[in-house]
């Protein structure tokens, strides 16, 4: 009797995992960079190609680093959320224009509003690779010491902002 129950027990364990698995997103890959210093970059700015922007410029403050592109459909979904956030002035947002053309990117900002203090241009996607970008948009929360505290994969929704990003930003700002 006991041995005959074994298949049933194994099956029930598998079912337990499958039940948990239903609520997980297999496409979401957590970044190994969380808790590590943000990879260094110094790139030309979108508004002025002669000026260079570097991650060191943001040392000492908490900031959001938003990877976007004019060709990215999902970026359109999050754009108004970012614009509203930038107007509130809670936290500065810096952009990384990923594998884009300058003209398209500028036009995009002109149309949808510019939530970014500044945008770095990553034309060949090298910095994107350093940050482990695999699906635009992605957003990083980086603390005063320049350490990545959180990575949002996919659009920043109002819910994500309210429940995850803003509480984290507030906590980091007090530190």
């Amino acid at each position: 009797m006991k041995r005959a129950l074994l298949p049933l027990i194994i099956f029930l364990i598998v079912v337990g995992f499958l039940l948990v698995g239903l609520n997980l997103d297999p496409r979401e890959v957590p970044s190994p960079l969380v808790g590590k210093p943000a990879p260094a970059f110094s790139l030309p700015r979108l508004d002025n190609a002669d000026k260079i922007i570097s991650n060191k410029d943001m040392l000492g403050k908490v900031w959001l680093f938003n990877v976007w592109a004019s060709w990215c459909g999902a970026c359109r979904d999050e754009h108004h959320v970012l614009v509203a956030l930038s107007k509130s002035g809670v936290v500065p947002i810096y952009g990384l224009d990923y594998k884009d053309t300058r003209l398209d990117a500028l036009q995009w900002l002109a149309e949808g509003g510019n939530p970014y203090v500044a945008t770095a241009v990553d034309e060949n996607g090298r910095v994107g690779i350093d940050y482990g970008v695999y699906g635009v948009p992605e957003t990083y929360v980086i603390d005063k010491a320049g350490v990545i505290a959180y990575k949002q994969i996919g659009p920043v929704t109002e819910a994500v902002l309210r429940d995850k990003i803003l509480p984290l930003v507030k906590r980091l700002q007090i530190q």
Partner: peptide, 28 residues
Amino acid sequence: DPRRGLFILAFLVFVIGGSLLLFAWRAP
């Protein structure tokens, strides 16, 4: 659609779980 996953899982438990239970009861 998460409801679909849940439905099939429930169905699996019914069919597979039921038959393995029957097996445990009758096989010996």
